[in-house]
Design a protein around this nucleic acid. Sequence first.
DNA 1: ACCGCTCATGGAAACGATTCCATCATGGTT
DNA 2: AACCATGATGGAATCGTTTCCATGAGCGGT
Lengths: 334, 334
Amino acid sequence: MSGPAQRRITIKEVAEAAGVGVATVSRVLSGGSASAETREKVLAAAARLDYRPSALGRNLRRQRTGGIGLLVPDITDSFYARLADGVLSCARSYGEPVTVGVTGDDPEREAELIGTLIEQSMDRLIAVPSGDGETWGLALRAGLNVVFADRRVRADVPSVVPDDRAGVLTAVEYLAGLGHRKIAYLGRHGQSQRVAAFTSAIASLGLPADRDLVVHARSSRDSAYAAAAGLLQHRADVTAVIAGGNVLGEAAVLAARELDVRIPKDVSLIMFDDVPWAELCSPPLTVIAQPAQDIGYRAAELVLRHGRRPPAVTLPTQLVVRASCGPKVSAPRR
Amino acid sequence: MSGPAQRRITIKEVAEAAGVGVATVSRVLSGGSASAETREKVLAAAARLDYRPSALGRNLRRQRTGGIGLLVPDITDSFYARLADGVLSCARSYGEPVTVGVTGDDPEREAELIGTLIEQSMDRLIAVPSGDGETWGLALRAGLNVVFADRRVRADVPSVVPDDRAGVLTAVEYLAGLGHRKIAYLGRHGQSQRVAAFTSAIASLGLPADRDLVVHARSSRDSAYAAAAGLLQHRADVTAVIAGGNVLGEAAVLAARELDVRIPKDVSLIMFDDVPWAELCSPPLTVIAQPAQDIGYRAAELVLRHGRRPPAVTLPTQLVVRASCGPKVSAPRR
DNA sequence: ACCGCTCATGGAAACGATTCCATCATGGTT
DNA sequence: AACCATGATGGAATCGTTTCCATGAGCGGT
């Protein structure tokens, strides 16, 4: 099965092999001052013995764990997977390990995961927050160094978010330009920013306000499908839908097919988040592209060199026109 | 910015508050024997102070880190994201944190990540291996408790893999049943098992063997596209393609569109790995579904309770017929 | 020649938990 | 009454590292 599990060599043995004290070895290895001769000896001994300092010992002494925690609602969602990839990519260049947790957009699970992270003395955390400000108040008071990604729930925590305001406005303007007046937003937990931007955009373009035109789903695929189907079924008057994420968009396409609603003939669809399959879909989906990977990367940068961090970074989105939007139909669908 | 970072409370303070010794506190909290009265006092004090044991202290003493490492080629790939989700889901029920690394199918990066993990004294690792047996020999000798997922590169390491042999055979038989004789396999790094199964299946059905019918791509999207385009362009005689993963399938669809090769009229396509968009694609893709999440979950189970582990678990795949395969065309494509 | 300054160096404390071991009380048996 | 077995308990060692502090050497300036 596994090998004889050879004991790991410690700084003490390196010191002995080099004929110096442990303090000197530590100093040399962490870049402190030492004579050229001593440095040579220590380095040679360390290399010869293939010495690897124990992160455990170091962290215990330093009272902080290297490494960063990452909390996302769903690693299976392409958006969060790309965000995670950005974080991992940045962390790798610093040699920092990343511990990932999946919250499922459940504040309770989130709190639990934060607890685990604190137990590990992890002091840096990137999170797509599910809970409200209160959960995070506790985390902050515990000394955690938090950066929010994708969503901002507290003003006093640095965050990296896509430009939802501009993204939604672009989408609504584009649809309005095609003649649509009844536009629905299919969103989910944690998108209050976007919903606000949506209603504000609707108002600013003089379109009829209707709070029922905002539909919410939980973060599962089933819930997304139910919400999309419900919207298409009960509101035959809406001629355009904005889906607030790729699983919502997928659900909308599926539901439309099931209900014989044709895209874009009967209803136009814009999806938030450009994913590889958007182009493969039938019809190819017009999307608001979000720089998911960049969001992760920038968040990691912020949390890693946390000197004088700006309170908030906003990254631009981009409208990518494909074939899921058309002019408004004159006759109602049903 | 961040709060005053209150100092964390230690076992010593709990002991003092409860009026007992630290040893007793430790014993009570880890389920050792103690009188009912003492247990009561300790539990009360711990709760009152909101005590959380430091994983650092514990691990240093125990000489092993809880938590498990997870190495995947690409977290952005839906297959590995689902695999990771399975691991995370299982780990969560044990309260174990998971540290994720992305290897990019590069043995060098993989070795580097293993090094980082060893530095953290992590002793449990789930990996989709990129390197050959040698890399892993070192890791094993360092006392790592490894479980392979998705691929098996050493017989002496427990592993959880999909039933490639049966999956490939099913795909080839299905295509042969439709009259196809020139079937190509579009694979990538690390799929030697599947390639072997493919050539063996071809042979067993009496189809013409042709080693050029196996094309390899590296794990990037660009490389996948190039390989797919090259195959479709230079081998006008192949009438069916098996793509060895969802990014390869995506690349094949894209390349076919670009080259005006119609699916399934001109060439049939079977993709390994069922992803949500396979149904949304035009045409909907016939796939070999793989239980990615299960693979991750089972691997995590194996690595967590590593008592008497079986050398290998093989999970079934399933053919899902949609609309990307058709009968062989009689006239050559070009 | 002496003083004070800088610099390299090593011993030892500290971090927070677990666990060995000695101590002590208790209760039952000879 | 003496003794042993059992079980609860706390002191102290330990894990591997960093870092404080004391020591001593070398050296230039007065």
